[in-house]
Each structure stands twice: as structure tokens, then as C-alpha cells.
Measured scan of single mutants.
Amino acid sequence: DEVTIHLGDKTIRVDGLDKELLEILKELARRGADEEELRKEIERWER
């Protein structure tokens, strides 16, 4: 499953996201997290 996250004018595509992680990323994005913060969160989950 590829998920596309839209952040204002930026788009991040991620393969096979965990549903819980997806919810966390959506919440972070709502709070104004930037792409770098979201990537760090994704990397934390992948470990």
C-alpha cells in the first residue's frame, strides 16, 4: 500500500505504512509538523 501525505505544497509518499503510524503522521501534520519531522517519525517506526 502506498500512502501519499500532502503537506501544504509538499507531498510525501510512503510504502506500507502501519495504520497507527499513519494516524500519528496525520496528527503531526495537522499540528504543522514539517516534512523533516514526519520523516523522522517514520524512521523511528521502521526500526
Results as ranks from 00 to 15, higher is better:
1 D>V: 13
1 D>Q: 11
1 D>L: 13
1 D>T: 14
1 D>K: 09
1 D>G: 13
2 E>S: 14
2 E>F: 14
2 E>T: 14
2 E>P: 11
2 E>K: 10
2 E>I: 14
2 E>M: 13
2 E>A: 13
2 E>R: 09
3 V>A: 14
3 V>K: 08
3 V>L: 12
3 V>I: 14
3 V>T: 13
3 V>D: 12
3 V>Y: 15
3 V>N: 15
4 T>D: 11
4 T>G: 07
4 T>W: 12
4 T>C: 08
4 T>E: 13
4 T>P: 08
4 T>Y: 15
4 T>H: 14
4 T>I: 15
4 T>F: 15
5 I>G: 02
5 I>T: 03
5 I>W: 01
5 I>S: 03
5 I>C: 06
5 I>N: 03
5 I>L: 09
6 H>L: 14
6 H>C: 08
6 H>Y: 06
6 H>V: 15
6 H>N: 15
7 L>T: 06
7 L>N: 04
7 L>P: 04
7 L>D: 04
8 G>K: 10
8 G>C: 04
8 G>F: 11
9 D>M: 02
9 D>T: 03
9 D>H: 06
9 D>W: 03
9 D>K: 02
9 D>S: 03
9 D>E: 07
9 D>I: 03
10 K>E: 10
10 K>T: 15
10 K>F: 15
10 K>R: 08
10 K>Y: 14
10 K>S: 14
10 K>C: 06
10 K>N: 11
11 T>Y: 10
11 T>Q: 07
11 T>M: 04
11 T>G: 14
11 T>E: 12
11 T>R: 01
11 T>N: 12
12 I>F: 08
12 I>N: 03
12 I>E: 02
13 R>S: 14
13 R>V: 14
13 R>E: 12
13 R>M: 08
13 R>W: 13
13 R>P: 08
13 R>C: 03
13 R>Q: 14
14 V>L: 15
14 V>H: 04
14 V>C: 06
14 V>F: 15
14 V>P: 05
14 V>W: 12
14 V>T: 06
14 V>M: 04
14 V>K: 02
14 V>A: 06
14 V>D: 03
15 D>I: 08
15 D>G: 06
16 G>H: 13
16 G>S: 11
16 G>A: 09
16 G>M: 12
16 G>C: 05
16 G>N: 13
17 L>R: 04
17 L>Q: 04
17 L>T: 04
17 L>S: 07
17 L>F: 10
17 L>E: 02
17 L>Y: 11
18 D>M: 06
18 D>G: 07
18 D>S: 12
18 D>F: 04
18 D>E: 09
18 D>Q: 09
18 D>L: 05
19 K>Y: 10
19 K>Q: 11
19 K>H: 11
19 K>C: 06
19 K>S: 12
19 K>W: 11
19 K>T: 10
20 E>M: 10
20 E>W: 05
20 E>V: 10
20 E>L: 10
20 E>F: 07
21 L>A: 02
21 L>I: 05
21 L>N: 00
21 L>W: 02
21 L>E: 01
21 L>H: 02
21 L>T: 02
22 L>S: 03
22 L>M: 10
22 L>A: 08
22 L>R: 09
22 L>P: 00
22 L>Y: 10
23 E>G: 06
23 E>H: 07
23 E>C: 04
23 E>W: 10
23 E>R: 09
23 E>N: 09
24 I>T: 07
24 I>S: 04
24 I>C: 02
24 I>R: 11
24 I>G: 01
24 I>P: 00
25 L>H: 00
25 L>E: 00
25 L>P: 00
25 L>I: 09
25 L>T: 00
26 K>G: 04
26 K>E: 08
26 K>N: 09
26 K>Y: 15
26 K>D: 05
26 K>L: 14
26 K>R: 15
26 K>M: 14
27 E>K: 03
27 E>G: 05
27 E>Y: 05
27 E>M: 06
27 E>H: 03
27 E>R: 03
28 L>Y: 03
28 L>Q: 02
28 L>C: 01
28 L>F: 04
28 L>S: 02
28 L>I: 03
28 L>W: 02
28 L>V: 01
29 A>V: 14
29 A>I: 15
29 A>D: 03
29 A>P: 00
29 A>R: 05
29 A>W: 08
29 A>N: 04
30 R>K: 14
30 R>A: 14
30 R>C: 06
30 R>P: 00
30 R>N: 13
30 R>L: 14
31 R>M: 10
31 R>D: 09
31 R>A: 15
31 R>T: 10
31 R>E: 09
31 R>H: 11
31 R>Y: 07
31 R>W: 10
31 R>L: 11
32 G>A: 01
32 G>S: 02
32 G>R: 01
32 G>V: 00
32 G>W: 01
32 G>L: 01
33 A>Y: 07
33 A>F: 07
33 A>G: 06
33 A>S: 05
33 A>K: 03
33 A>H: 04
34 D>C: 03
34 D>V: 05
34 D>E: 08
34 D>N: 14
34 D>Y: 03
35 E>C: 07
35 E>G: 03
35 E>S: 07
35 E>H: 06
35 E>Y: 13
35 E>M: 05
35 E>V: 09
35 E>D: 05
35 E>W: 06
36 E>N: 07
36 E>K: 08
36 E>P: 04
36 E>T: 10
36 E>L: 08
36 E>F: 10
36 E>Y: 12
37 E>R: 11
37 E>M: 12
37 E>Y: 06
37 E>D: 13
38 L>K: 01
38 L>A: 02
38 L>F: 07
38 L>H: 00
38 L>R: 01
38 L>P: 00
38 L>C: 04
39 R>V: 08
39 R>C: 08
39 R>K: 11
39 R>H: 06
40 K>G: 08
40 K>F: 09
40 K>W: 09
41 E>V: 13
41 E>R: 03
41 E>I: 08
41 E>H: 04
41 E>Y: 09
41 E>C: 05
42 I>Y: 04
42 I>E: 00
42 I>A: 02
42 I>H: 01
42 I>Q: 02
43 E>P: 00
43 E>A: 03
43 E>D: 08
43 E>G: 04
43 E>S: 05
44 R>N: 11
44 R>I: 11
44 R>F: 07
44 R>T: 08
44 R>K: 11
44 R>S: 08
44 R>Y: 08
45 W>M: 01
45 W>I: 01
45 W>S: 01
45 W>E: 01
46 E>V: 08
46 E>H: 10
46 E>T: 07
46 E>C: 06
46 E>D: 09
46 E>L: 13
46 E>I: 11
47 R>E: 15
47 R>C: 15
47 R>M: 15
47 R>V: 15
47 R>I: 15
47 R>Y: 15
